[in-house]
């Protein structure tokens, strides 16, 4: 398995930091397209892109195996992520399979959501008893603000996709990474909600996410200078962390969370059962979840 983390440092990482017992298996992230993406954002925390193959695309059988293990564990939510999930050639089949198991959220940049795809998604939403949600990334209210990190022309493409989703009756969650000043706080949130409503989305939902300074983002900014100490977390913080109730299934095994899938030391096993155990938050990026309150769940 490829990893940027030397084995010695990896061993050190998991042997320190506050402990997080595994409570139960609620949320199964499935990295259906690995690191394959149609764009290469400057702030991506796992270095995804059109030529990024360090984590392979999962086959249908592999995804089904993940879903079966999730069902056995009594999972509530499945998240399809990547890379860009809509690049998967069998995504329609994967969505049907996931909705048969649990509520599903697809984390996407939206660019591939053409009219046919939106119509198909609306049908899947109607047919399923379990919830189907979309999470679309948009990192600014102007092309200048968004395209500086997501790539030239992406603002127009994402906005057009959101308009199609709104016209199709969807209310996607728009996620905004706080990649520059002015993209945080209540005022920015209110402005963004108005902006999304203006795109024709009846019930706008916006989720702001702090920057994760790993992956490609570590090359744009300075990365992390420190890690968490060994002190115990407050119970309310500990129990709310994604890694207390979820795991990420990839083509290379099951990881602590979707953030650390490029770090070999965060691989906890080959199956959900193997990975359902307590961990220590020895990875630098854990600071963002503990100190900045990042929660990947919608």
């Amino acid at each position: 398995m490829k990893s940027d983390v030397p084995e010695s440092r990896a061993t050190e990482a998991v042997a320190r930091g506050p402990r997080v017992p595994f409570r139960w298996m609620d949320t199964l992230w499935v990295q259906v397209t690995g690191t394959l993406c149609n764009i290469a954002c400057q702030h991506c925390f796992i270095s995804c892109g059109p030529k990024a193959t360090q984590i392979p695309v999962m086959g249908v059988d592999e995804v089904q195996r993940a879903l079966d293990q999730g069902r056995d564990a009594g999972v509530r939510h499945v998240y399809f992520t990547g890379g860009e999930p809509f690049l998967h050639p069998e995504l329609q089949s994967l969505v049907a399979r996931a909705l048969d198991v649990a509520a599903l959220t697809i984390v996407t940049n939206g660019i591939l959501l053409d009219d046919d795809t939106v119509r198909w998604l609306a049908g899947a939403f109607e047919r399923s008893r379990n919830a189907l949600d979309l999470r679309v990334s948009l990192d600014g209210m102007t092309a200048a603000q968004n395209d500086s990190v997501r790539g030239r022309g992406t603002f127009a493409e994402i906005v057009a996709a959101l308009q199609r989703l709104g016209a199709g009756g969807f209310s996607p969650v728009v996620t905004v990474v706080e990649h520059e000043q002015g993209l945080e706080g209540a005022e920015a949130r209110a402005r963004f909600l108005d902006f999304v409503r203006g795109l024709g989305i009846r019930q706008p939902r916006v989720k702001f996410l702090p920057l994760l300074r790993i992956g490609r983002e570590a090359r744009r900014s300075e990365g992390y200078a420190d890690r968490l100490g060994d002190e115990a977390l407050l119970p309310a913080v500990e129990s709310s962390l994604l890694c207390a109730t979820g795991r990420c299934f990839t083509a290379q095994g099951v990881y602590t969370c979707p953030i650390l899938v490029e770090d070999a030391s965060a691989r906890l096993g080959a199956s959900v059962a193997e990975a359902s155990r307590g961990i220590r938050l020895g990875w630098a990026a854990c600071q963002t979840c503990v100190l900045d309150g990042l929660r990947c769940n919608t």
């Binding site: 069902r71 009594g74 509530r76 649990a102 008893r129 919830a131």
Partner: peptide
């Protein structure tokens, strides 16, 4: 049963999860 403030919505409470509870 496992958490006093857990939300059991119809659309996010699949069968296998409820069977377990």
């Amino acid at each position: 049963p496992r958490q006093q403030n857990e939300f059991l919505w119809e659309s996010t409470a699949p069968d296998a999860f409820l069977e377990r509870l």
